[in-house]
Design a protein around this nucleic acid. Structure first.
Lengths: 239, 239
DNA sequence: CGGTATTTTGAGTAGATTCAAGCTTGGTGG
DNA sequence: CCACCAAGCTTGAATCTACTCAAAATACCG
């Protein structure tokens, strides 16, 4: 059920069988949501965190004029709001991009878990710091990259993150956003995203079609994006 | 010495005298740096964290073409790299924007501190989550705000953060960045920052001159920025 | 006082937006 | 099985925001 979460942790840290068991035991229930649902609303007081079992979620903020900025995407294996454990209310909302299955983890149980296993506390702290590293990379994209390089960097990020949880299928991966949502991530209009995707296709780097990315030239894509995966900390946390 | 750090914590949480004393005791030494020094280099292995006593620091990443993107500013009272405690190496570098005094806190002592005071562990975890919230707000700025609104939002952020640590002087505060550095924060060229600052001045919102911001119309500035300080969590963490 | 860094202004350009229309695709019901 | 509808994709043309390049003015430092 939360295998992908354990895979994600395991990509960066060692985990004993006992630790794995304790983590599994924190799940109170699994809930299903339809796509397009706001599952956490900015400012709500939280007493649980949400672990993505299946589907894609997004953190976002609404702005005047109906505009929406997405600040992070979540894939299976991610906590969408582990930071809610310390923050208690969020400065952003969370939305399902696709139909999704989500494991609900009460903060009370996270508290017990990290009290009993101080090592897991560090790993979970690490995990929220990794979210911050992803935010920083988006700041770089939005502040300094061209539309082409931005979209390429987003593809590279998801490519790597999905690979970690076993969701790469050969050279392609599911990326079930529409062009408008891609724009909400990368600060572009849907029209310009469309033109940018055409460029990426015409350069032979990748093809985005019906919520799926086919990578034709990973090295080229990374070069265009100036992508360096070290911000995803795949070598993990060494004590 | 680390009074501003305690003030910053105190703005969001209660702290007992014993906790305060324990936090003070983690400082191993205080070092002075000249402005423009890279004090942490991306990828370096870290065994200490840096607590800003005096001066401004910035987290940044270098890009091809000599371009540099700043992802967060640090003011007195902030840890510049508390996330290094769990990440052990950073995905970005850190630079002194001004001459600075920095308290060096060994990770070993942070480990002992949070083991002895689980409450402080949560507060420090909270603190790195607050950095992430600041990153998210920058993502919103860079992705969705105009140049005018972006710069206004940055002024509002610093206004609030400096107020917390007692560095507001009436309606003005020190903000010792040049226009080029402001541009590196907000994804703008120095030339465009200059034109944007003129607009802010001509609208009677604020004046930026010689590293200082004079706020003339805080409500107006916040309106232009669509600023809502809730992402700075000044109501803190309630157990 | 001279030299350097920074700010300011101007003119031309480029990347991304806006607005609008037409086209595909996938799903639904007759 | 086809007609139709809604959502999303694609393209074009005009516009705008921010960038580039360049030069002059000002502020700062030794």
């Amino acid at each position: 059920m939360i295998e992908r979460h354990l895979a994600r942790l395991h990509a960066r840290h060692q985990l004993t069988a006992e630790e794995q068991h304790a983590i599994r035991a924190t799940v109170a229930e699994v809930r299903e949501f339809r796509r397009g649902m706001t599952v956490v609303r900015q400012g709500d007081r939280l007493s649980t965190s949400m672990l993505v079992v299946e589907g894609f979620l997004a953190r976002y903020k609404d702005l005047a004029g109906g505009h929406r900025q997405i600040s992070e995407l979540h894939v299976p294996g991610d906590f969408a709001d582990l930071h809610g454990f310390t923050l208690k209310r969020l400065d952003h909302s969370i939305l399902t991009i696709t139909d999704a299955r989500i494991a609900i983890v009460p903060h009370e149980r996270i508290g017990e878990l990290v009290d009993a296993f101080p090592r897991i506390m560090r790993l979970y702290w690490f995990s929220t710091n990794l979210d911050a590293a992803i935010h920083r990379e988006w700041v770089v994209s939005l502040g300094s990259r061209t539309a082409l390089s931005r979209v390429a960097a987003l593809f590279c990020e998801l490519h790597t993150r999905l690979d970690v949880v076993g969701l790469m299928k050969g050279d392609s991966f599911e990326f079930p956003l529409n062009q408008s949502e891609l724009g909400e991530c990368m600060g572009l209009t849907a029209v310009h995203v469309n033109r940018t995707l055409r460029q990426i296709r015409e350069r032979g780097l990748a093809t985005f079609r019906r919520g799926r990315v086919d990578v034709h030239d990973l090295a080229g894509l990374r070069e265009v994006a100036e992508f360096d995966d070290s911000y995803l900390y795949l070598d993990g946390y060494e004590e």
